[in-house]
Computed example of a mutant assay.
Amino acid sequence: MSQSAVSNSTGDERCDAIVLDVQAAFDEHLPGRVLGCYLRGSRAAGNAVEGSDLDLLIVFADRFSGLEEFERAQAVCESCARSSPILLEIMLIGENRLYDDTALDAALDLKLSCRPLFGADIRDTLPEFESTTYVRNVIHTPYYSYSAPAQRDARIAYPLEHIEPMGEFYGFDQWLIPGPAGPGTPSTKLLVATVGWTATALVARRFGVYVPDKAASASMYADLIGDAWTPLVHDVHEWCRNRWHYPAPESDAERSILRGMSGDALDFQNHFLRIYRNDALDELASGDPGRQRLAAERLEQITSPGDPEVERALRAFSSASTAADPLE
Protein backbone atom coordinates (compact mmCIF):
# COMPACT_ATOMS: atom_id res chain seq x y z
CA MET A 1 0.00 0.00 0.00
CA SER A 2 1.59 3.24 -1.09
CA GLN A 3 -0.58 5.62 0.95
CA SER A 4 0.32 6.39 4.55
CA ALA A 5 -2.65 8.71 5.15
CA VAL A 6 -6.09 9.26 3.71
CA SER A 7 -6.63 12.33 1.54
CA ASN A 8 -9.13 13.67 4.08
CA SER A 9 -9.25 12.40 7.64
CA THR A 10 -12.35 10.96 9.26
CA GLY A 11 -11.27 12.67 12.47
CA ASP A 12 -10.43 9.34 14.10
CA GLU A 13 -7.07 7.60 13.61
CA ARG A 14 -8.63 4.13 13.96
CA CYS A 15 -11.13 4.93 11.22
CA ASP A 16 -8.44 6.45 9.01
CA ALA A 17 -6.51 3.16 9.21
CA ILE A 18 -9.64 1.22 8.22
CA VAL A 19 -10.25 3.55 5.27
CA LEU A 20 -6.67 2.94 4.08
CA ASP A 21 -7.32 -0.80 4.24
CA VAL A 22 -10.53 -0.37 2.23
CA GLN A 23 -8.71 1.72 -0.36
CA ALA A 24 -5.94 -0.85 -0.66
CA ALA A 25 -8.44 -3.71 -1.00
CA PHE A 26 -10.29 -2.05 -3.88
CA ASP A 27 -7.00 -1.06 -5.54
CA GLU A 28 -5.95 -4.72 -5.42
CA HIS A 29 -9.19 -6.43 -6.46
CA LEU A 30 -10.90 -3.80 -8.66
CA PRO A 31 -8.12 -1.43 -9.76
CA GLY A 32 -9.19 1.85 -11.29
CA ARG A 33 -12.90 1.31 -10.70
CA VAL A 34 -13.49 3.41 -7.59
CA LEU A 35 -14.27 7.00 -8.49
CA GLY A 36 -14.46 8.21 -4.89
CA CYS A 37 -15.02 7.20 -1.29
CA TYR A 38 -17.10 9.29 1.12
CA LEU A 39 -17.76 9.35 4.84
CA ARG A 40 -21.44 9.01 5.79
CA GLY A 41 -23.58 9.05 8.90
CA SER A 42 -22.77 10.40 12.33
CA ARG A 43 -19.02 10.55 11.72
CA ALA A 44 -19.59 12.78 8.70
CA ALA A 45 -22.01 14.93 10.71
CA GLY A 46 -19.53 15.22 13.58
CA ASN A 47 -21.86 13.76 16.21
CA ALA A 48 -20.52 10.20 16.52
CA VAL A 49 -20.59 8.45 19.87
CA GLU A 50 -18.63 5.48 21.16
CA GLY A 51 -20.07 2.53 19.25
CA SER A 52 -20.98 4.52 16.14
CA ASP A 53 -20.46 2.70 12.84
CA LEU A 54 -17.91 3.72 10.28
CA ASP A 55 -20.27 4.36 7.35
CA LEU A 56 -18.70 4.71 3.91
CA LEU A 57 -20.12 5.31 0.43
CA ILE A 58 -18.05 4.08 -2.49
CA VAL A 59 -18.95 5.40 -5.94
CA PHE A 60 -17.88 3.31 -8.93
CA ALA A 61 -16.91 5.16 -12.09
CA ASP A 62 -19.73 5.28 -14.64
CA ARG A 63 -21.70 2.14 -13.72
CA PHE A 64 -21.11 -1.42 -12.63
CA SER A 65 -20.17 -3.45 -15.69
CA GLY A 66 -22.58 -6.17 -14.60
CA LEU A 67 -23.73 -8.33 -11.73
CA GLU A 68 -20.35 -10.07 -11.56
CA GLU A 69 -18.50 -6.82 -10.87
CA PHE A 70 -21.07 -5.72 -8.31
CA GLU A 71 -20.75 -9.05 -6.49
CA ARG A 72 -16.96 -8.76 -6.51
CA ALA A 73 -17.26 -5.29 -5.00
CA GLN A 74 -19.65 -6.60 -2.35
CA ALA A 75 -17.19 -9.37 -1.51
CA VAL A 76 -14.45 -6.77 -0.97
CA CYS A 77 -16.77 -4.82 1.33
CA GLU A 78 -17.63 -7.94 3.33
CA SER A 79 -13.98 -8.89 3.68
CA CYS A 80 -13.10 -5.41 4.94
CA ALA A 81 -16.01 -5.47 7.39
CA ARG A 82 -14.95 -8.83 8.84
CA SER A 83 -11.46 -7.56 9.60
CA SER A 84 -12.54 -4.15 10.93
CA PRO A 85 -12.31 -3.51 14.69
CA ILE A 86 -15.17 -1.00 14.30
CA LEU A 87 -18.53 -1.91 12.77
CA LEU A 88 -17.97 -1.03 9.12
CA GLU A 89 -20.84 -0.51 6.68
CA ILE A 90 -20.02 0.24 3.05
CA MET A 91 -22.67 1.32 0.57
CA LEU A 92 -21.93 0.86 -3.13
CA ILE A 93 -23.41 2.84 -6.00
CA GLY A 94 -22.57 3.48 -9.64
CA GLU A 95 -21.83 7.07 -10.63
CA ASN A 96 -24.49 7.23 -13.33
CA ARG A 97 -27.16 6.01 -10.92
CA LEU A 98 -26.73 9.18 -8.87
CA TYR A 99 -28.19 11.25 -11.71
CA ASP A 100 -31.34 9.13 -11.97
CA ASP A 101 -34.53 10.52 -10.40
CA THR A 102 -35.18 7.20 -8.67
CA ALA A 103 -31.95 7.63 -6.68
CA LEU A 104 -32.41 11.27 -5.69
CA ASP A 105 -32.39 10.40 -1.99
CA ALA A 106 -28.96 8.75 -2.35
CA ALA A 107 -27.67 11.66 -4.44
CA LEU A 108 -28.84 14.21 -1.86
CA ASP A 109 -27.29 12.24 0.99
CA LEU A 110 -23.98 12.30 -0.87
CA LYS A 111 -24.28 15.95 -1.87
CA LEU A 112 -25.47 17.33 1.46
CA SER A 113 -24.41 14.90 4.19
CA CYS A 114 -21.18 13.15 3.14
CA ARG A 115 -17.51 14.12 3.24
CA PRO A 116 -14.93 12.98 0.66
CA LEU A 117 -12.13 10.72 1.90
CA PHE A 118 -10.26 9.76 -1.27
CA GLY A 119 -10.75 9.95 -5.01
CA ALA A 120 -12.88 12.43 -6.94
CA ASP A 121 -15.34 14.76 -5.23
CA ILE A 122 -18.45 14.90 -7.42
CA ARG A 123 -20.83 16.51 -4.93
CA ASP A 124 -21.12 19.81 -6.83
CA THR A 125 -22.28 17.99 -9.95
CA LEU A 126 -25.16 16.15 -8.29
CA PRO A 127 -28.85 17.12 -8.60
CA GLU A 128 -30.36 19.74 -6.32
CA PHE A 129 -33.14 19.01 -3.84
CA GLU A 130 -36.57 18.56 -5.42
CA SER A 131 -39.26 17.78 -2.88
CA THR A 132 -41.70 15.56 -4.77
CA THR A 133 -39.06 13.24 -6.21
CA TYR A 134 -37.18 13.05 -2.91
CA VAL A 135 -40.31 12.11 -0.98
CA ARG A 136 -41.27 9.47 -3.53
CA ASN A 137 -37.87 7.84 -2.97
CA VAL A 138 -37.40 8.23 0.77
CA ILE A 139 -40.88 6.92 1.60
CA HIS A 140 -39.61 3.44 0.65
CA THR A 141 -36.44 3.44 2.77
CA PRO A 142 -38.01 1.85 5.90
CA TYR A 143 -38.60 -1.28 3.82
CA TYR A 144 -34.88 -2.06 3.90
CA SER A 145 -34.69 -2.29 7.69
CA TYR A 146 -38.09 -4.02 7.90
CA SER A 147 -36.92 -6.77 5.53
CA ALA A 148 -33.35 -7.09 6.87
CA PRO A 149 -33.96 -9.50 9.77
CA ALA A 150 -33.14 -13.12 9.01
CA GLN A 151 -36.71 -14.19 9.82
CA ARG A 152 -38.13 -12.09 7.00
CA ASP A 153 -37.32 -12.14 3.31
CA ALA A 154 -37.40 -9.62 0.48
CA ARG A 155 -41.23 -9.64 0.53
CA ILE A 156 -42.87 -8.52 3.75
CA ALA A 157 -46.57 -8.62 4.59
CA TYR A 158 -48.67 -5.96 6.26
CA PRO A 159 -49.47 -6.11 9.10
CA LEU A 160 -46.01 -7.07 10.30
CA GLU A 161 -45.58 -9.47 13.17
CA HIS A 162 -42.70 -9.57 15.63
CA ILE A 163 -39.44 -10.98 14.25
CA GLU A 164 -39.07 -13.23 17.32
CA PRO A 165 -42.37 -13.21 19.25
CA MET A 166 -40.82 -15.10 22.17
CA GLY A 167 -37.52 -13.19 22.20
CA GLU A 168 -36.71 -10.80 25.02
CA PHE A 169 -36.48 -7.90 22.56
CA TYR A 170 -38.66 -9.51 19.86
CA GLY A 171 -35.64 -9.94 17.55
CA PHE A 172 -34.53 -6.30 17.51
CA ASP A 173 -31.21 -7.33 19.10
CA GLN A 174 -30.08 -9.60 16.27
CA TRP A 175 -27.68 -7.15 14.56
CA LEU A 176 -24.32 -8.00 16.14
CA ILE A 177 -21.51 -5.49 16.58
CA PRO A 178 -17.90 -5.53 17.81
CA GLY A 179 -17.77 -5.23 21.59
CA PRO A 180 -15.65 -6.01 24.66
CA ALA A 181 -16.60 -9.69 24.43
CA GLY A 182 -15.78 -9.91 20.71
CA PRO A 183 -17.48 -9.26 17.37
CA GLY A 184 -20.79 -10.94 18.25
CA THR A 185 -22.27 -8.46 20.73
CA PRO A 186 -26.10 -8.09 20.51
CA SER A 187 -27.01 -4.50 19.72
CA THR A 188 -29.87 -2.07 19.35
CA LYS A 189 -28.76 -1.12 15.82
CA LEU A 190 -31.78 -2.69 14.11
CA LEU A 191 -34.18 -0.89 16.44
CA VAL A 192 -32.45 2.45 15.86
CA ALA A 193 -32.47 1.95 12.07
CA THR A 194 -36.12 0.83 12.01
CA VAL A 195 -37.49 3.69 14.10
CA GLY A 196 -35.14 6.27 12.58
CA TRP A 197 -35.96 5.47 8.96
CA THR A 198 -39.67 5.29 9.74
CA ALA A 199 -39.56 8.72 11.36
CA THR A 200 -37.52 10.06 8.42
CA ALA A 201 -40.08 8.83 5.89
CA LEU A 202 -43.02 10.27 7.83
CA VAL A 203 -41.38 13.69 8.27
CA ALA A 204 -40.40 13.89 4.60
CA ARG A 205 -43.83 12.74 3.47
CA ARG A 206 -45.73 15.24 5.60
CA PHE A 207 -43.56 18.31 5.04
CA GLY A 208 -41.53 17.64 1.89
CA VAL A 209 -38.24 18.45 3.61
CA TYR A 210 -34.83 16.82 3.42
CA VAL A 211 -33.93 14.79 6.53
CA PRO A 212 -30.13 14.44 6.72
CA ASP A 213 -29.76 11.58 9.19
CA LYS A 214 -31.44 9.60 11.98
CA ALA A 215 -30.34 12.08 14.64
CA ALA A 216 -32.05 14.86 12.73
CA SER A 217 -35.12 12.69 12.16
CA ALA A 218 -35.72 12.41 15.93
CA SER A 219 -35.64 16.17 16.52
CA MET A 220 -37.55 16.97 13.32
CA TYR A 221 -40.22 14.41 14.19
CA ALA A 222 -40.75 16.05 17.59
CA ASP A 223 -40.75 19.58 16.16
CA LEU A 224 -42.85 18.98 13.05
CA ILE A 225 -45.15 16.04 13.82
CA GLY A 226 -45.32 15.76 17.60
CA ASP A 227 -47.85 12.92 17.73
CA ALA A 228 -48.31 9.90 19.99
CA TRP A 229 -45.21 8.24 18.48
CA THR A 230 -42.88 11.10 19.41
CA PRO A 231 -41.83 9.59 22.78
CA LEU A 232 -40.82 6.33 21.07
CA VAL A 233 -38.78 8.15 18.39
CA HIS A 234 -37.07 10.24 21.07
CA ASP A 235 -36.47 7.40 23.51
CA VAL A 236 -34.98 4.99 20.98
CA HIS A 237 -32.48 7.63 19.89
CA GLU A 238 -31.71 8.79 23.44
CA TRP A 239 -31.40 5.40 25.12
CA CYS A 240 -29.98 3.22 22.34
CA ARG A 241 -27.54 5.68 20.83
CA ASN A 242 -26.76 8.37 23.37
CA ARG A 243 -26.81 6.35 26.58
CA TRP A 244 -26.06 2.75 25.67
CA HIS A 245 -23.98 3.53 22.57
CA TYR A 246 -25.79 0.71 20.76
CA PRO A 247 -24.96 -2.54 22.68
CA ALA A 248 -27.97 -4.09 24.43
CA PRO A 249 -27.89 -3.04 28.12
CA GLU A 250 -27.07 -5.42 30.96
CA SER A 251 -29.16 -4.23 33.92
CA ASP A 252 -32.66 -5.65 34.39
CA ALA A 253 -34.17 -2.17 34.59
CA GLU A 254 -32.63 -1.03 31.32
CA ARG A 255 -33.43 -4.30 29.58
CA SER A 256 -37.04 -3.74 30.58
CA ILE A 257 -36.90 -0.30 28.93
CA LEU A 258 -35.46 -1.82 25.76
CA ARG A 259 -38.12 -4.53 25.70
CA GLY A 260 -40.85 -1.90 25.97
CA MET A 261 -39.42 0.15 23.10
CA SER A 262 -38.98 -2.99 20.98
CA GLY A 263 -42.63 -3.91 21.51
CA ASP A 264 -43.84 -0.41 20.61
CA ALA A 265 -41.66 -0.33 17.48
CA LEU A 266 -43.82 -2.96 15.79
CA ASP A 267 -46.92 -0.78 16.24
CA PHE A 268 -44.99 2.19 14.83
CA GLN A 269 -44.02 0.12 11.79
CA ASN A 270 -47.62 -0.90 11.14
CA HIS A 271 -48.75 2.71 11.62
CA PHE A 272 -46.34 3.67 8.85
CA LEU A 273 -47.34 0.78 6.59
CA ARG A 274 -51.00 1.81 6.75
CA ILE A 275 -49.98 5.23 5.44
CA TYR A 276 -47.61 3.68 2.91
CA ARG A 277 -50.39 1.44 1.56
CA ASN A 278 -52.71 4.40 0.96
CA ASP A 279 -49.97 6.42 -0.72
CA ALA A 280 -49.10 3.49 -3.00
CA LEU A 281 -52.75 3.16 -4.04
CA ASP A 282 -52.82 6.89 -4.86
CA GLU A 283 -49.71 6.43 -6.99
CA LEU A 284 -51.31 3.49 -8.82
CA ALA A 285 -54.27 5.73 -9.65
CA SER A 286 -52.10 8.68 -10.72
CA GLY A 287 -52.18 7.95 -14.46
CA ASP A 288 -48.40 8.48 -14.65
CA PRO A 289 -46.88 5.24 -16.02
CA GLY A 290 -43.55 5.69 -14.23
CA ARG A 291 -45.16 6.36 -10.87
CA GLN A 292 -47.61 3.51 -11.39
CA ARG A 293 -44.84 1.02 -12.19
CA LEU A 294 -42.87 2.05 -9.12
CA ALA A 295 -45.94 1.72 -6.89
CA ALA A 296 -46.74 -1.72 -8.32
CA GLU A 297 -43.17 -2.89 -7.75
CA ARG A 298 -43.27 -1.67 -4.17
CA LEU A 299 -46.61 -3.33 -3.48
CA GLU A 300 -44.96 -6.57 -4.57
CA GLN A 301 -42.28 -5.99 -1.92
CA ILE A 302 -44.63 -4.78 0.82
CA THR A 303 -47.70 -6.94 0.33
CA SER A 304 -51.19 -6.74 1.84
CA PRO A 305 -52.52 -10.31 1.66
CA GLY A 306 -56.30 -10.46 1.52
CA ASP A 307 -56.67 -6.70 0.97
CA PRO A 308 -59.28 -6.49 -1.81
CA GLU A 309 -58.57 -2.84 -2.64
CA VAL A 310 -54.86 -3.48 -3.19
CA GLU A 311 -55.59 -6.64 -5.20
CA ARG A 312 -58.10 -4.80 -7.45
CA ALA A 313 -55.68 -1.91 -8.02
CA LEU A 314 -52.83 -4.23 -8.97
CA ARG A 315 -55.06 -6.23 -11.34
CA ALA A 316 -56.28 -3.04 -12.99
CA PHE A 317 -52.72 -1.79 -13.45
CA SER A 318 -51.58 -5.14 -14.84
CA SER A 319 -54.48 -5.22 -17.32
CA ALA A 320 -53.85 -1.65 -18.44
CA SER A 321 -50.13 -2.36 -18.89
CA THR A 322 -50.82 -5.47 -20.95
CA ALA A 323 -53.31 -3.59 -23.13
CA ALA A 324 -50.77 -0.81 -23.71
CA ASP A 325 -48.04 -3.31 -24.71
CA PRO A 326 -49.54 -6.68 -25.69
CA LEU A 327 -46.08 -8.13 -26.42
CA GLU A 328 -44.82 -7.45 -22.91
Rank of each mutant, 00 (worst) to 15 (best):
S2L: 11
S2T: 12
V6H: 01
S9F: 03
S9Y: 02
T10W: 05
G11T: 08
G11F: 06
C15E: 14
D16C: 02
D16G: 06
D16V: 02
L20Y: 02
L30E: 02
P31W: 05
P31K: 03
G36V: 01
C37A: 14
C37H: 00
R43W: 08
R43I: 07
A45G: 11
V49A: 10
G51P: 08
S52I: 10
D53M: 09
L57F: 07
I58R: 01
A61T: 10
L67I: 11
E71H: 06
R72M: 04
Q74Y: 08
E78L: 09
S79Y: 02
C80V: 05
L88T: 10
L88H: 08
I90R: 03
I93Q: 11
Y99M: 11
L104E: 09
D105C: 14
L108Q: 10
L108A: 04
L110R: 05
L117Q: 05
L117E: 01
F118M: 10
G119E: 01
G119D: 01
D121S: 04
P127H: 06
P127D: 04
S131D: 11
T133C: 14
Y134A: 12
V135N: 05
V135M: 07
Y143S: 00
Y143N: 01
S147G: 00
A148Q: 14
A150S: 14
A154E: 12
R155Q: 14
I156T: 06
A157M: 04
A157I: 00
A157L: 06
E164R: 15
E164C: 11
M166N: 14
M166L: 13
Y170W: 10
G171Q: 03
W175N: 09
P180Y: 08
P180H: 09
V192W: 07
A193G: 01
T194M: 07
W197L: 15
A199C: 05
A201E: 09
A204W: 03
A204K: 02
R206G: 04
F207M: 07
G208T: 08
V211D: 02
P212F: 05
P212W: 07
K214G: 05
D227P: 08
W229Y: 13
P231L: 07
D235V: 00
H237W: 15
C240N: 12
C240P: 08
R243V: 15
A248H: 02
P249S: 12
D252G: 05
S256Q: 15
G260C: 04
M261S: 02
S262F: 04
G263L: 07
A265T: 12
H271R: 15
F272R: 01
L273Q: 06
L273V: 05
I275K: 01
R277F: 08
R277A: 03
G287P: 11
G290P: 08
R291G: 15
L294W: 07
A296Q: 06
Q301L: 10
I302F: 10
I302C: 15
T303E: 06
E309W: 00
E309Q: 13
E309A: 12
R315I: 09
S319K: 10
T322D: 06
A324P: 12
D325M: 06
D325T: 13
L327F: 13
L327W: 13
L327E: 14
